[in-house]
Simulated scan of single mutants.
Amino acid sequence: MTTMAARIIHVSIERDWRDVYAFMADHQKMPLWASGLSTGLAPDGDEWIAPGPLGNARVRFAPANEFGVVDHLVTLENGAKVHNALRVVPNGDGAEVMFTLLRQFDMGDEQFAADAACVHKDLDTLKTILEESKDGKRTTL
């Protein structure tokens, strides 16, 4: 069995981890911070449809849980499946959000680096939204 190269990308957020999890687990809010879903998600039974440049992807999320797991399985129109491991854990009075980026077998160095940069940007956006909203500066929550 061959494993894929992996990179764990994380950000610390000055907000109670349960608030962070609740925001991230609200799938309709994901387009606010997850650029790959910027066109939105539409519910379809137990899955969500995410339109994108490669067609409609089907997204299945981990059920609500008390462990901060926001994993999701993305199935592309061509049948390829990508597991996205996304976790929120307590970090002092705040939270640590971690995304495990797996390098797909057909992905070159530049594309893997570009994907990592996108994930960093998305997590930074999430941090900004959640830290600003706790002070009443934003009302997107």
Rank of each mutant, 00 (worst) to 15 (best):
T3P: 06
T3H: 09
R7N: 05
R7A: 06
R7L: 08
H10E: 13
S12F: 11
I13T: 11
E14P: 11
E14G: 12
E14W: 12
R15S: 14
R15K: 07
D16N: 14
R18T: 08
R18H: 09
D19L: 08
V20R: 05
Y21C: 05
A22W: 05
A22R: 13
F23E: 01
F23S: 03
F23T: 04
K29S: 06
K29L: 06
P31E: 00
W33L: 12
S35C: 12
S35R: 15
G36H: 09
S38K: 15
G40Q: 04
L41H: 04
L41E: 02
A42V: 12
D44C: 08
G45A: 02
G45M: 01
E47N: 10
E47Q: 12
W48D: 05
W48S: 03
W48C: 04
A50Y: 05
G52A: 10
P53Q: 15
P53R: 15
P53D: 15
L54H: 15
G55M: 14
G55I: 15
G55S: 14
N56R: 08
A57H: 11
A57C: 08
R58G: 12
R58F: 14
V59P: 07
R60N: 10
R60S: 13
A62R: 00
A62W: 00
A62L: 01
P63D: 06
P63Q: 03
A64G: 10
N65L: 01
V70W: 02
D71R: 01
D71K: 00
H72A: 05
H72C: 09
H72T: 04
L73C: 09
L73Y: 10
V74R: 02
V74N: 02
T75M: 02
L76Y: 15
N78T: 10
K81F: 06
K81E: 14
V82P: 06
N84C: 04
N84G: 02
A85T: 09
A85W: 06
A85L: 07
A85C: 07
R87L: 00
V88E: 02
V88Y: 00
V89C: 13
P90I: 00
N91K: 14
G92K: 01
D93F: 11
D93H: 12
D93A: 12
D93Y: 11
G94R: 01
G94S: 04
E96S: 13
M98A: 14
L101H: 02
L101G: 03
L102P: 05
R103K: 12
Q104K: 07
Q104I: 07
M107N: 02
G108L: 02
G108F: 06
D109Y: 03
D109H: 05
D109C: 00
E110Q: 08
A113N: 09
A113D: 08
A114Q: 11
D115F: 11
D115S: 07
A117Y: 07
V119A: 02
V119N: 02
K121V: 08
D122N: 12
D122T: 05
D122H: 03
L123W: 00
D124S: 11
T125V: 08
T128M: 09
T128G: 08
T128N: 07
T128C: 06
I129A: 00
L130Q: 00
L130G: 01
E131Y: 00
E131C: 03
E132P: 05
S133R: 11
G136H: 03
K137Q: 07
T140V: 10
T140W: 09
